[in-house]
Amino acid sequence: MTIANHAAPTQSGGTPVADPNDHDVVAIPLRRPWRIISAIAVLFILAAFISSVATNPNIDFGTVGTFIFDKRIVEGAWLTIVITGISMVISTVLAVIVAAMRLSSNPVLSSVSWFYVWAFRGTPLLVQIVLWGYLGLLYEKLTLGVPFTGIVFWQIGTNQLVTAFVAGLLALTLNQAAYSSEIVRAGMVSVDEGQREASYSLGMSPLYTFRRILLPQAMRVIIPPMGNELISMLKNTSLLSVIAVLELYTQASMISAQNLKQVELLIVVSAWYLFMTSVLSIPQYYLERRFGRGTSRSLPPTPFQRVKQAFVSRRIPGPEPTPETTPIGVQR
C-alpha cells in the first residue's frame, strides 16, 4: 500500500497553517497482478484436471454409482470405523501408561518403555500385521499357568483365540501406542517444570500430579497430532487386507476381482475414506478449541458461527444514519 502525504504550508516561525484543501493521508492500494495471474493459472489447471477425469472414457461412472452404497462396501466401511475406534481408544490408554513409564525415575520402567517404542516404531506396520496374523505358526497353543513348573490352568488354540480380526486389532493398537506415547511424552515435557515442583510441594503424589496437573495442561499440545494419528489409523486399516480382514479395502478388492473394475472400485474406496476422515475432523476441531481455552483472549468463531453471523448480518440491515450520527463532510 502506498501512502501519499501532502506537506502543509507553514508560517515564518515554522508553525503549520491549516489548509482546507489538504488531506491528511491518501492510501493507494498496491497492485499485485501476480496474485491474480497465479490464481487464474491454478483454477485453469484444476478445471483441466476435473474435465479430463469427467470425460475419461476409461472410467465407468455408472459402476461407481452402483457400488458406492453397495451392502458389502457399507459393511466394510462400518468394520473399518469399528476397528479404528477400538484400536485408537486402547492405544491411547496404553500410550499414556508408556509415556508415564518413560518419564519415570525407575530405570526398569523407563528401559522397558524405551524398548517397546524402539521395537514397534522400528519395524513396518505391514510386517507386524503379518506376524500377528501368523502367530499360530509360532505358538500352536496359548497357555496360562505357573512358568517353569509345567502347571497349566488354561489352554486354547492360538488360531481359535487370535482370529484375523483380533490379530488386526493387536497389530494396529500396539503399533499406534508406540507413536502416541511419544506424542504424550512431548506434551508432558512441554508443561513448565514449575508445575510439577509446585504440586510436589503441596504433597501431591507423582501419579496424582500426572493425572490432575500435567496431563490436562499437555492436552493442548497432544490433541492436534493425535487427531492426525486417528486419521492415519483409519487409513492404515486397509493394510489388514493381507490377513483377510473384511474391511473397506478388502471388500472393494473382492468385488473388483469379480467384475474387473479396479479403478472404479478404488474411486469408491477413496470417496468413503474422504468422507470418514472429514467426519473425524469435526470432533478434533472442537477438542482443540476446548483444550485451547486460555491461550488467547477470545476463541475464533466456529464455521457454524461464521455462517450464522453472515446469515444474520444479511437478514438484519444496519440502522439508517441520522444527521446527528453522520460524520462531518460525509454525504448520505
Rank of each mutant, 00 (worst) to 15 (best):
T295G: 14
I223H: 12
T10R: 12
G13E: 12
I37L: 13
R293Q: 08
V112Y: 09
P20Y: 03
Q331D: 13
E197A: 11
G150T: 03
Q258F: 04
P57F: 01
Q195L: 01
A48N: 02
G13D: 15
V64C: 10
F210V: 10
E264C: 03
T66F: 04
T163H: 05
E288A: 03
T55Y: 08
R315A: 11
L46V: 15
Y116G: 00
L79C: 06
E75A: 15
P147A: 01
S105Q: 14
L79V: 10
Q155E: 15
L234C: 11
S38R: 06
P300R: 10
L137M: 07
L246A: 12
V112H: 10
I86Q: 05
P9Q: 06
V26C: 00
F49Q: 06
A8M: 03
I223K: 11
A177W: 06
S205M: 09
M276A: 11
E197P: 03
L131A: 15
A244C: 02
I213G: 00
Y179E: 05
V330L: 14
A171D: 07
A99I: 00
S87V: 01
Y179A: 06
T2W: 03
T277Q: 11
P147G: 03
S313P: 02
I3N: 08
S12C: 02
T2E: 06
P323L: 05
A310V: 05
P303H: 07
K261W: 05
G157Q: 02
Q217V: 01
S52I: 05
N58W: 09
L239Q: 12
G157K: 01
P319G: 01
T325G: 06
D70E: 02
V189K: 12
A41D: 05
Y208D: 15
A4E: 07
M219A: 14
R72H: 05
N56G: 09
S181D: 04
S110G: 08
G136E: 01
L265P: 02
P225K: 05
V96Y: 11
P9M: 08
A41L: 15
V312H: 14
R35W: 10
I183K: 00
I45R: 02
Y208C: 08
G133Y: 10
F49W: 13
V130A: 14
E288D: 05
R297F: 15
F275E: 07
F210H: 13
A95M: 03
S51E: 08
W272A: 07
P323M: 06
L266C: 02
E75G: 11
L131S: 13
Q176V: 00
S296D: 11
I243L: 08
P216V: 00
L274A: 09
P327K: 08
A47I: 13
V98T: 07
L144C: 04
S51G: 13
N259F: 03
K71M: 14
V93G: 15
P317R: 06
N259T: 09
L234S: 13
Y208G: 12
L161S: 00
I68E: 10
G14C: 09
L109W: 14
I28A: 08
P9C: 11
P147W: 02
A18Q: 08
Q195W: 03
L246S: 12
I328C: 02
D24H: 10
S296M: 13
T55P: 04
N58M: 12
R121T: 04
S12R: 08
M254C: 00
P225S: 00
